[in-house]
Amino acid sequence: MDADADTGPAAARPAAPLQEEEPQTPLQQMMRHWVNERHAPDILPAQEGLMMGLLDHLRRQTRSVQVLRDDPTSSESEHIRIHLVQTEIERVRFVIRSYVRTRLYKIEKYARYITSNAEIQTRLTASERDYASKHARLTDQHLYLSVLQSLPPAQAHLDDTAVFSPSMVTVPDKTRPIFVHALQDCPPVRLPDGATLEMKKGHISLTPYHVVEQLLERGEVELV
């Protein structure tokens, strides 16, 4: 979120006290991935290493809070310090929890698609892949037992591709518009109407997701 306070071309604006400096801390990166994940219609590459690092850090902080709290000689300012550390732990937990839940929501939604698509599987962690296939198997079984088994065999499929009806497998809608914020000058991208768009640093646009998909993967833009 470093460029947040600096969205316009006139960088001379006196907003310096609220600007965060590079390089980004793990928490800042995590928050950016969290917001991206919330806005993107597709599942973004998993940030397993980053998340594990933060979870480790959380455990360490929790432990040191425990040690400090057990010390009866602590002063009032010590209490405030402990309180601040604990508040931060809760804030970080909130972000990680929301990030994981957002991914779970998408995994449940696209479970059947994930099991049949190798590319999207590379963006999931091992346990997420496992969860997706279990979820797909369970819903399939449920649909079969409750309805499909009593239908004629020709209509008992879950993946018919009839000509004029929408596909039976939910796939990510990459044409969904998203608000994108350029973190640096970006190479030109092609828009659906054939024109090209070259975003300068700080540029904000509303555009379909597939237009900026690659820029997002390279971290040149963020979703807002």
Binding site: R176, P177, F179, P192, D193, I204, T207, P208
Partner: peptide, 29 residues
Amino acid sequence: HSELGLTGLSSMEINEIRPFFVQSMNVLT
């Protein structure tokens, strides 16, 4: 259906117009 530049808009303002703008663009697409 392809792009709308909104440079300078702030995060809260984006959030405010999001539902309507996203839906409108979806229809245009």
